[in-house]
């Protein structure tokens, strides 16, 4: 009797879990699916009511992607359609390359400097430790929009406007506090005994870090790297005012400009959106094990 109700309860629970999972999946995936489906439709089809939920043969087109990747417009397209393919569409790829280069550099700087810093906060009691740590955290409370103009003046003094290096510096400064925060929390969860043992064996600071600390903290480090990469890939406010050419414009700036374009093609905007989120999504899928392990790591 008791066993019966328990298994009944469990069965019900499993069904509920399944239904909930399905609903969540729809909630998460539907908007993305629609962006993808739109990007393969002809311009005129996107203005049909009701919308086409599946691209059939007569409305299917690759021309939006073709334009983004090659800059070419179908010969039979009328001049008006050609005008809808605003040139910013062809800036998407250089923009993505800029974004990726910047985000990788920011990630590297975060690991290179943030990791030892997080470790230091977690392990050493030193003069001013908690004050400096709070100081780092407080920088997170600053609206980017409020420091854009001082930032512009600063960069101009060093002749760094419209350079990738400037964005790398800014994004590193923005992300480092957070990296330090989560790594500190992570290191605090690792027993200090391993490091002490390594030191007993005569390992120096660098060797201890490399041999013991980093391997033990791997999930936390990956998580920190992901957060830093995404924050840099995502940033818009600084990028939009501090860049002025393809030399440093990031994908966020390009797609925002494209979306505001006077009567830009909707299909093109959708395709551009898909192309822009593809790199991080591909990275996420490629390294899903590490990413999921990293992101679901306990920090606090």
């Amino acid at each position: 009797m008791l066993a019966n109700t328990i298994s009944g309860r469990r069965w019900r629970k499993q069904l509920l879990t399944l239904v909930a999972t399905a609903l969540i999946l729809i909630y998460i995936l539907a908007p993305i699916c629609w962006a993808i489906v739109s990007s393969f439709q002809k311009e005129s089809a996107l203005e049909d009511r009701p919308p086409h939920f599946f691209p059939t043969a007569e409305i299917f087109t690759l021309s939006h992607y073709k334009f983004i990747f090659t800059g070419q417009i179908d010969k039979e397209a009328t001049t008006m359609i050609q005008a809808q393919y605003t040139m910013s569409g062809t800036y998407i790829l250089p923009g993505i390359v800029n974004s990726i280069v910047i985000a990788l550099a920011v990630t590297a700087i975060n690991l290179l400097f943030g990791l030892p810093a997080g470790h230091a906060f977690a392990r050493y009691q030193f003069w001013g430790s908690s004050q400096v740590f709070m100081g780092f955290l407080v920088t997170r409370l600053l609206p980017a929009i409020s420091i854009v103009i001082p930032m512009y003046i600063l960069l101009q003094q060093f002749d760094l406007l419209d350079t990738k290096r400037a964005l790398v510096g800014i994004y590193s400064a923005i992300t480092l506090p957070f990296t330090i925060w989560i790594l500190k929390a992570y290191f605090q969860n690792i027993p200090v005994e391993y490091e002490e043992a390594a030191r007993m064996d005569g390992c120096g600071y660098l060797r201890t870090m490399w041999r013991v600390v980093i391997p033990l903290a791997r999930p936390g480090i990956i998580a920190a790297a992901i957060f830093a990469f995404m924050a840099a890939y995502d940033e818009f406010v600084f990028a939009t005012v501090l860049t002025s050419s393809l030399n440093s414009k990031t994908q966020t700036v390009i797609i925002a400009g494209l979306a505001q374009g006077l009567s830009a093609s909707r299909g093109l905007i959708a395709a551009a959106a898909v192309v822009c989120f593809l790199p991080p999504v591909l990275l996420a899928i490629l390294f899903r094990k590490q990413v999921v392990q990293g992101l679901t790591t306990r920090f606090a």
Binding site: I28, I32, D234, F236, I255, F277, V281, A284
Partner: peptide
């Protein structure tokens, strides 16, 4: 991971 990977703009 998908919504997380989609840039804000």
């Amino acid at each position: 991971l998908l919504p997380y990977a989609i840039p804000g703009p």
